[in-house]
Amino acid sequence: MILDAIQPNLAMFIRPLRLVSSGWTGHVPFGSWLVAVQQPRILVELGSHFGMSYAAFCQTVQNESLNTKCYAVDTWQGDEHAGFYGDSVYNDLAAFNDKHFAAFSRLMRMTFDEATTYFEDGSVDLLHIDGLHTYEAVKHDFDSWLPKLSDRAIVLFHDTNVRERDFGVWQFWAEITKQYPSFEFDHSAGLGMLAVGPNQPAEVRKLFDLTKEQVGTNAVKEVFSSLGESTLRRWELESTRQELTSKASDVERVLAQLANVDEELRTLQKEHLRAAGLLEQYDHTVKETHARNEALSNELARNEALRSSELSRNEALTSKLARSETARSAVENSLSWRITKPLRAVRSIFKG
């Protein structure tokens, strides 16, 4: 059935070089198939953000060796639907683009309206509109770029199947498909393909004709939805791999930190043992000092006892001497002592 609907090509089995978080990931196989079939001379994307869709377009141009000039237009500041972000998103995509697609791809950091002045009327073959998703913004982007579209132009609209948060792509899609041939995928938030130029490749015309035949339409949708699901799984696996790699790095970092902690613990243990030795030495010194102090205290006590005994003896002798002196004074002052004084004098003469 798929062979009756469209002609498969190798591009639809693309293995994206760039896998990032994006609502467009599920449409990468179809986008690659379309670029390979249409072979646009100039491809412009309005709103690239992380660059999932743009990188897939460029990779197909490179793989198919197409003579295509690719341009991604974005302020890389964000909006109310994509969220607001800093320069890191642009810098990352610019580095990737310079590394892989610098020969034919340019990032144009400006508004969509400003970028229109850099393209001639009737020059753009493939236009991807994926900027601010309000009805007014999408209509303005389409109308302002319509003069730039060639007679073989195709316009892609992302998020045609989102009806929330003031998304209005589905409303504009319902209006514009009344004027041009179209084909819409429902998966991954929806993707609409609009044939603005009348001169389309046979394979693309066959796809638009499928809208009249439900079985073929469902078959094509199922094929690209399945391929898109496979790409999503690849992104999930890559994200898991990166997460595991990051966790492995975290584990290695933790192990390194634990090794440092272990080394610090060994150092602390050595210091603890050294401190314990010093404490033991100090304790021994204290005990020796205490023993010496105790010996000195005992010696001082003995000396004090001897001094007290000596003082007691001195006090006794002093008391005895005082009594003797008192007795002598008493004798000398007595009457008999005075009467016998001449006799003691004569005795001393004879003794001499």
Rank of each mutant, 00 (worst) to 15 (best):
L43C: 04
A174E: 15
K212E: 14
R347S: 11
V169N: 04
W337I: 01
F96T: 05
I14S: 12
P181M: 03
E252H: 09
W170G: 03
L210A: 06
S53C: 07
S334L: 04
A11Q: 06
D262E: 14
A55Y: 03
M52R: 11
Y54W: 11
H100I: 01
A189Y: 13
A95I: 01
I6D: 05
V196R: 01
I42G: 05
T134H: 02
V220Q: 07
K351V: 08
L343D: 09
G192I: 04
T68H: 09
H128P: 01
R233G: 00
T217H: 07
S65W: 07
A55E: 07
E184P: 03
F183K: 00
A305L: 11
M110Y: 01
L300I: 13
N91W: 02
P8E: 05
T111W: 03
V73T: 02
G168L: 04
R302N: 11
A189Q: 12
L255R: 11
R109D: 03
L273T: 00
Y71L: 04
T267E: 15
G228T: 04
A115S: 06
G47E: 02
D262G: 08
V37S: 12
L93I: 07
G277C: 03
T117N: 08
V61G: 10
T217G: 10
Q38W: 00
Q200S: 02
N199W: 06
D87I: 07
F208Y: 12
A345Q: 10
D121M: 05
F104I: 06
T134Q: 01
V155H: 05
L191T: 01
E80F: 09
E325R: 15
D209C: 07
D209H: 12
Y135T: 01
G277T: 04
T326W: 08
H140D: 11
T289I: 06
M108E: 05
I176Y: 00
A248M: 13
A327I: 08
E238I: 00
W33C: 05
R347D: 11
K148C: 01
E164V: 10
D4K: 14
R253T: 09
L258K: 10
P40Y: 05
T231F: 01
A330M: 11
V220I: 10
H49Y: 13
L273H: 06
Y135H: 08
L232R: 14
M1V: 09
K320T: 11
N314T: 09
T231C: 14
T267S: 15
M1P: 07
S32K: 05
T326H: 14
T217K: 14
L227I: 03
